[in-house]
Design a protein around this nucleic acid. Sequence first.
DNA 1: CTGTTAGCGCATTCAC
DNA 2: GTGAATGCGCTAACAG
Lengths: 338, 338
Amino acid sequence: MAKIDIKGLARELNISASTVSRALRDSHEISKATIDKVKALAEKLNYQPHPYAGSLRKNKTKTIGIVVPEVSNNFFAKVFSGIEVVAQENNYHALIYLTHDDYDKEKSILHHLQSGRVDGVIMSIASNTKDHSHIEELIQAGIQVIFFDRIGESFSTTKITTDDYNSAYKATVHLIEQGCKKPLHITRFLHQTNTKYRKKGFIQACKDYHLPIEDNWVIELNDDAVVEPTLTNILKNEYRPDGIFSSVETLSLYPYKVCKELGITMPDQLKFVSFSNMDAASFLVPALTTVTQPAFEIGKAAAMVLFQQLEKKKRGMQPLDNVFPSTLIVRESSIKNK
Amino acid sequence: MAKIDIKGLARELNISASTVSRALRDSHEISKATIDKVKALAEKLNYQPHPYAGSLRKNKTKTIGIVVPEVSNNFFAKVFSGIEVVAQENNYHALIYLTHDDYDKEKSILHHLQSGRVDGVIMSIASNTKDHSHIEELIQAGIQVIFFDRIGESFSTTKITTDDYNSAYKATVHLIEQGCKKPLHITRFLHQTNTKYRKKGFIQACKDYHLPIEDNWVIELNDDAVVEPTLTNILKNEYRPDGIFSSVETLSLYPYKVCKELGITMPDQLKFVSFSNMDAASFLVPALTTVTQPAFEIGKAAAMVLFQQLEKKKRGMQPLDNVFPSTLIVRESSIKNK
DNA sequence: CTGTTAGCGCATTCAC
DNA sequence: GTGAATGCGCTAACAG
């Protein structure tokens, strides 16, 4: 199956390559007859334009980069699905890179992405990324960047998040309304935007309901190894919390395990709410209340906005950074009570 | 930040573009001094070669396509993680496409992939794909294709699977050894290779243990909507099965739900084993025995083999199809008993 | 050791 | 309406 190119088509039809090129793009300066002739042959010979030749010529790749910590995580997997659906609809292609939550990897990936391989990037920042200069560089190189979930607040690009503050507030209120007097907030990486705002929501709810909030009501558990011991310690205490609000999916299973080991029954003796996109968890665990982010929709929104921005740019307009500075697209997370 | 190219570097240094090009590639015909000079400037100016220009010239993209049904599924997500890790190590890039288990979509994706966008493809076939001519075409177009899990048996390319027959056999034996006399095998899409062999393993185990296997011991549940009613029907029957072996993760949660509704306790009244890569499930459900495929390793193996094949091809050797016809890489699935 | 030339496949001038 | 020439950024063949 010899690859057929424009020159090949031209030769077959005894016309010039440029005519073929124009015919394939429905140029108005080509006669209907030629267009039909060319297209018929192209179809017959299964002609496919070489994507990289066009990219080189037009300086436009129709490709985006997706940079996420991982994908074995329902949230990111679903966001990706959303992006992918919209990408296919718009004939964009998606290169995906995993940072494995590692700053150095994220840095080298973004550095490479300046090369012209992609038109734009959709990303969620690695959990141990604190310096954002590598992102700044990418933007400076003219690559459109869109953030979701773990966003770079300082950049004036589009950001897509759920309303972390409000969702956390509601989740906490939910605990309180079930009778909690001493809720515990377990979380990770509070320097990230999402966890930071969730913590704020938790605290505000406690204040609004006049709970005597103390320092040890919020605990940051970044290291997998310490989660169980720490929780065990806290829960076997006589004055243990009567409710837990987990900020991240990763922490949502530990309380069950520890409670089971300690003989604490849920939800009778301990209420529990967690951010989670794990379908299985809410299905299997009767007492589980989850705060679920609309991951698929976030992905779709991110892609739609990015493609729209890229198309405008193509038509020679200003890059949209200037038109929509710092667009913040916020969606509600739904609280599912099982 | 003006993009810098080879010509730019050449101009700065008053040497020719080809010298720069060679220096950057550590050509042995360039003096050490020039190489150093060039590299220093390249570093300083943050030069990045344009990937598509090189691809065009060398007819090699350093990019692979990953075509999978979905990624919101722990198995595929982990396979992808494995692929991605190896890809980064080898400086390959991964374009990912989701078929959403739709034959038409799979067909159009593969058709596009003939265009020269990728050097190779790693795929798992959509569940409703029965005709394989679109895959044949892709291979004919000179794209290396590697299958995993849901493989195309008829192609003489590398295939990576777990030993479905054997794993299913063992899982069934596990049920029988726990006292099952009437196991039920629930499965999906028996025209696929993986489910087909799992069914065979189930049946053989039943035979080897002299269970009087009947037609209704295997049931194919392709439609989400009928799963619950069908299971309910089966399980409320007086002569219901005393064990269930599920062939796919998607079906692994329904039995719990139905049993809970019917008041059947697991594992006392009903043993259960399922193929599953869902971490949460085995964590949360005490009675769950899972057959877990080494997804991450499958991904790594697929990528390693593919890259190895592509590198050989590059050096002008025969494409490896001829060297390793129909390489079948099989791995054990582990059975985890909780 | 280095420079000149050509061309990967395509789209866009500029001619006619 | 169509063809010839040019160049996207890079590498490789051919010269010295």
